[in-house]
Design a protein around this nucleic acid. Structure first.
Lengths: 350, 350
DNA sequence: CTGTTAGCGCATTCAT
DNA sequence: ATGAATGCGCTAACAG
């Protein structure tokens, strides 16, 4: 027995493999990375030794030495549990896989502090780029970022006032406008708005489209019909309360999939207790099964997965450009994902 | 102008900061990591220089030198787009954040090759541990793993025959048994099974509970009622076909949330076209809004987020133990998450 | 084809 | 309290 207790079965290094194969570490390195200029005989010996030891090259050390990028992309979202961001992450992962990158993902929980921690951790781990859904209203985001991101940063879903970065947004204003117009076209005049207009920039943009459509139709908006809710439970409660009012709304505009689920729950319950005809709902974002509930539903739909893929695409464009800075840095790009309005049940033709 | 084109605004290192602050790199290092034995005056000067340059310590280099763990956890799931795994990932992220770790997440798409790539990438980047939902039927998983994982590995949702690793499963057999018994208690005798029994171990376990419950009630299972479907669209088609048969089933057992969505879509459509009473559905996994459809629904429910948290918890236990290997390695642990059966609409009391 | 030297960014150890 | 030397795992550059 030599040495101390072999409690820690050391992770094998080039040296270990070299010793076992009876060659120099350099030969191992060469063999592992392609095997140019290595005799077939030595190559097999090295591979055998590597397999036997379960050797895996340490990418971190490798990148350090090569001054090469790490192949890591940092992604920060506001609510990983939301199916929407699951699809979003999937879109990024697809694209990242295509470019041979891995993704580090973090959940900011709409908390700017947690978000700052995440971004710090990501940059510290030498990510090549960042894709961020800014937490909360995004105020102070630029400050929190400090001068940090020497790596490309793409903002998704929400933009930051005064921060000139590649950004992928949804056509919130246009989509909300179209969806609201659809409701109005069906005869609705009293339409409630469910969404935290002050807290979340996306909600504000959708509210803007909403009010624009109302204004275009000459309908004044009753501020009493604005419910600044942020999650499913609150939305449900708000809908119940609004329906209990003297002059209840005949339709609801729901700002995202979370509030939509809450609203549908309340509307469904209300219908079964009162027996009356159901109020209409316009939902920004798709919600699985929502179309089967028999509640008049207008969906302002877009594809979060495509949004994620687009964000990743912008990022990789930027990375490629940084490698070949021929024409100087391109100006930040803004992409708006299109929104489609659908009606359930489908309106009668003609 | 000295040197070549400063096209690449080099990422600042300790040296850059040291030069700017007029100290040695060592002093910068000390200052950045706690600041013990550094005079207040020097400390502020260093911090100022660091801020000015936007310096971030390179965690990779740091970990290399310290032979310290990277603070990274690798997670591989089979379908990131499934809300189930969104919740699962959230549970892991929560727990990881608590332990000051970041997560590298990858989507295997049920593809063993892609899974192998992912695990390779993760280990190459020196993750401290892995949480894996094995792709497909898990055959060959151990081989693909090779002797690699010198890092702790936790299997989630699916176990691998013959691979003794920490594992978190759902009580598939018991849950399926209870859910099926519930259907039988309501008088159902012809119950179809929707799920890829041969392809996915989880489906097989749920099928086992299903057949056990049938057997316990003395009901033979008609193999014609087995639909080996794997996704939403296929499930929907299968349900339509089964309902069109001469002697159609009166109830369906759906193996997971994907097949449930498909089944609900078909059942809902069938009800509205035929006007008849809806067939019952027993769903393994919750599906948002499913309870509002007016279709007799039995849900075998568990919390994927808790499952993720539990998997992470096992992993961190193992990591802690590796640091203090007092009693030798503990035997692999198997945790089964409980399943609750719920009925919608709620059965009348009494 | 193979080995030696040196250095990536950082921190431990030992001086001063 | 500060700095110089040294080495983590890996590989480019240069022998031979």
């Amino acid at each position: 027995m030599t040495g101390s207790v072999p409690n820690a079965p050391r992770i094998p290094t080039v040296r270990d493999v070299a010793a076992l194969a009876g060659v120099s570490p350099m030969t191992v390195s060469r063999t592992m990375s392609g095997g140019q200029n290595v005799s077939a005989e030595v190559r097999t010996r090295v591979h055998a030794a590597a397999d036997q030891l379960g050797y895996r090259p340490n990418q971190n050390a490798r990148n350090t030495r090569l001054r090469q990028p790490t192949g890591l992309i940092g992604v920060a979202v506001t609510n990983l549990g939301n199916p929407y961001y699951g699809q979003f992450a999937l879109g990024i992962e697809d694209e990242a896989a295509r470019h041979n990158r891995h993704i580090l993902i973090g959940n900011s929980r709409e908390d700017p502090l947690r978000e700052a921690e995440l971004l710090d951790g990501f940059t510290g781990r030498q990510v090549e780029g960042l894709i961020v859904v800014p937490a909360g209203n995004g105020l102070g985001f630029a400050d929190r970022l400090g001068s940090l991101p020497r790596v490309p940063l793409v903002l998704a879903t929400r933009s930051i006032e005064g921060l000139e970065k590649d950004t992928v947004l949804v056509d919130d204003v246009g989509g909300a406008h179209a969806g609201t117009a659809s409701l109005i076209g069906e005869g609705h005049r009293r339409i409630a708005f469910l969404g935290d207009v002050d807290g979340i920039p996306t909600a504000r943009r959708r509210f803007q489209g909403f009010t624009e459509a109302l204004a275009a139709a000459g309908i004044p908006f009753d501020r009493a019909l604005l419910a600044p809710v942020r999650d499913t439970a609150a939305a449900s409660v708000a809908v119940q309360q609004l329906l209990g009012q003297p002059d209840p709304p005949t339709a609801f505009f729901s700002v995202n999939n979370r509030t939509t689920v809450g609203a549908l729950r309340a509307l469904s319950g209300h219908r079964s207790t009162t027996g009356g005809r159901a109020s209409a709902l316009a939902s920004f974002d798709d919600v699985e099964l929502a179309d089967l509930l028999g509640i008049p539903l207008t969906v302002m739909s877009h594809d979060p997965r495509a949004l994620g893929a687009q964000a990743a695409s912008l990022l990789f464009d930027r990375l490629a450009e940084d490698r070949l800075p021929e024409h100087g840095p391109a100006r930040p790009r803004l992409v708006q994902m299109p929104v489609t309005v659908r009606r359930y049940p489908s309106p009668p033709k003609g």
